[in-house]
Design a protein around this nucleic acid. Sequence first.
DNA 1: AATTCATATTTCACCAGTGAAATAAATTCT
DNA 2: AGAATTTATTTCACTGGTGAAATATGAATT
Lengths: 174, 174
Amino acid sequence: MARLDNCIAMMDEGIGRMREVIPHLPAEQVTLCRLMVMVGARLDDGLGEQIRQHQLNHSEFLTLVMLHSRPDGSSTPGELCEFTSQGSTNMTRIGNALVKRGLISRGASVEDRRCVLMRITAAGRRFVQKLLPPMFPRVEAMFAGFSATDRRQLSRLLRKLARNLDQLDADDAS
Amino acid sequence: MARLDNCIAMMDEGIGRMREVIPHLPAEQVTLCRLMVMVGARLDDGLGEQIRQHQLNHSEFLTLVMLHSRPDGSSTPGELCEFTSQGSTNMTRIGNALVKRGLISRGASVEDRRCVLMRITAAGRRFVQKLLPPMFPRVEAMFAGFSATDRRQLSRLLRKLARNLDQLDADDAS
DNA sequence: AATTCATATTTCACCAGTGAAATAAATTCT
DNA sequence: AGAATTTATTTCACTGGTGAAATATGAATT
């Protein structure tokens, strides 16, 4: 796989040439877009590899960790769909996979019996708690050389970007 | 689709609870990771929608724009694979699709006759130049409220993160 | 009680990308 | 000249996810 650094250099050159052909190209913003997508995807790939070693795919992992981090360790498929950006079809499949491995249980909700409750099991919790710590060194290494201010800035800017994206989606919808 | 803002709030709460269970969790870095992935993916989705209106998928678009931004408008499959993070199998398919639409041409290279040269056609250039400008307003809106300093900071931090990720990949390989 | 709405599952056809293996052709090495 | 290497294509089985439609069931509305 190409180093990110090369891809970025290639992009910088490409955008440099593009702006000569397309006069009103917002070069700085386009660059930031591409950086976000490239770096975000690569970051995800690296972690995905660690996850795959545990026979989990990305969505299954996310769903499981999501449940683990809920106050009561449970949620409904609909809610999980929303926060993992999955379709309901896929959520059903994810549920099947996790239930089969004994990491979660699934049953009708007591309050609203048409809801299904997915709940992490004790085995599921153990699994997550064993799975996560080995990922920490990599996560920390990603931000090596980032000062406390750098981290705060990045967090601030990403959250700001997120708000703008929400706004754009809202505009699209209306 | 859930607003990014909700997802982020949910994540913040989740990580807050997690750190009580897992003592040495690098909460700040994990948060940044998740932010990068979530925001990057959402950003991509929004643009992907605009691209799909032109009967192009993400990779085809990237490949085409890549060619357009090269000095001579041409490249080899291998090179394009590298910079678009595609497998060669897929690159062949992308080439087929773009050739069929007359946006690129494909033929043996003169210098090295085992290389294939993919070159954007005049029609391809027109297509790209008509396709891009409508995307600019969205791209600009994404960074609404970003000061020049904000943009420079974000660029700096993303490039720094990219270098760290390259370093991690290099370490993995060795 | 009947209708409407909400939640979830299942099935199905589909899209996009992966990874390995076999093939082909051209180049480089020795 | 012969062998090894590089580049690309093709085929194939696979993974992961999408989107629509049909079904079922429970809850809310009237």
